[in-house]
Simulated assay, not measured.
Amino acid sequence: MGNEVKIKAGIVGGAGYTGGEMLRLLLNHPHVDIAFVSSNSQAGKPVYEVHRDLLGDTELAFSGELGTDADVLFLCVGHGEAKRFVEANDIPQHVKVIDLSQDFRWNEGTDAAAVTAAGRTFVYGLPELQREAIREAQNIANPGCFATAIQLALLPLAAENLLTEEVHVSGITGSTGAGQSLSATSHYSWRSSNISNYKVLNHQHLREIGRTLKGMQGAALPAINFVPYRGPFTRGILCTAYLRSNLSQEEAEAMYKTYYAAHPFVTVSSATPDLKQVVNTNKCLLYIEKQGDNLVITSMIDNLVKGASGQAVQNMNLLFGFDEKAGLHLKASAF
């Protein structure tokens, strides 16, 4: 499609964190008009009453119904709700669906897609893994936030069958990763000046990570041990993965830079990066070091942008033939 083309987007579940982030991105996208944004809980309210930073940016109001005038639907609803939504609504086949929940990520095979609901085939939407498959797709299962950060840290190794030793990963995420509904572990008074781990070695994103890496490696995949942490900040993910490797630091850096040379949002840093360098952006920063026999890869993303809504927009750009970076030239917070 040419640069003059504009498409219409609908957002389902627009009142939450990912829905709000989707609104912010699409309101400033050069090739998108927002056809509608729905929310069962906020129907009839102006968008800016819920997402208060959008006051003065839009007069859109939340609807309680599914609009019919859209080329692409973003499903920003909870896990389990997306599958029910697709099955319960008569969505025209020409409308592309990008789901941000986990409902359509669970193909355990090694192919790029699986028919999962209502006759729709969902392709796993990690552009650095299968950009061409995404371009040809009709529906996208957007990856999880931790899954994105960890896979980007390990894809180059899997591509060369170099994941031969057990992998250990620790990762910390901001409170927005837990969703907008308050819980005991997301409330400010508990989260502030605090840290805790959760779902140790049993995080749900390990399922999609394992599926991806098994599909890439010709050899058997070793165990991937992941310990996630809740951080006392709002946005961002920092993961550190390490494994025994014969690669030197120079060899590993060269391999990573070659793998990601054609991918605009992944950068291999020559110095230890800080989380603030990626917050509010669609970037992933990788840092590689060798400590003894261990190769250590640090991966950083914004959980709401590259880990959710930004990656969904990146996938939309690929689906419709736009510049992959369109609408995603975003500035890090820095201070």
Rank of each mutant, 00 (worst) to 15 (best):
Q102R: 11
A15G: 12
V305R: 13
A112R: 09
G210M: 02
D103H: 01
F85G: 00
L154M: 05
E289F: 04
A149Q: 02
E324P: 09
R244I: 11
F335T: 05
L155R: 08
D99A: 08
G218H: 14
A252K: 05
T240V: 08
T298P: 00
S101I: 01
S41I: 10
I150L: 07
L319C: 06
H187L: 14
E165Q: 15
L182M: 13
A220G: 13
F335P: 03
N161A: 06
G215E: 01
E324T: 08
N28H: 09
A252P: 01
A61N: 12
T267M: 11
Q42C: 14
A35N: 13
G144C: 06
H329F: 14
P232C: 03
L152N: 13
H94K: 12
A35E: 04
R24F: 09
A178S: 11
S41H: 11
P222L: 08
L25G: 12
C76I: 04
A35T: 06
L243F: 10
A114V: 11
V95M: 02
Q151S: 09
Q249P: 01
V296I: 09
Q151A: 05
E253S: 04
G80N: 01
Q138E: 12
F74T: 06
Y198A: 07
Q130W: 03
H94D: 07
L23T: 08
L66C: 00
A312M: 06
G321T: 04
Q42I: 00
L55V: 13
L155Q: 03
D57N: 11
H79Q: 02
A261D: 08
Y242I: 01
C145R: 07
A133D: 10
G119E: 12
E128S: 07
E81I: 04
A113I: 02
S269D: 08
T234A: 14
S63W: 07
N161L: 02
A334N: 07
V72H: 10
V37T: 13
N315P: 04
K331P: 00
E132R: 12
G44K: 04
A252I: 14
R230P: 00
L318V: 06
V227M: 15
A113P: 02
I297V: 10
P143E: 12
L27P: 13
D53Y: 05
R207Q: 09
N282C: 13
K96G: 01
Q204R: 08
S170W: 10
G231A: 00
F85T: 02
D274S: 12
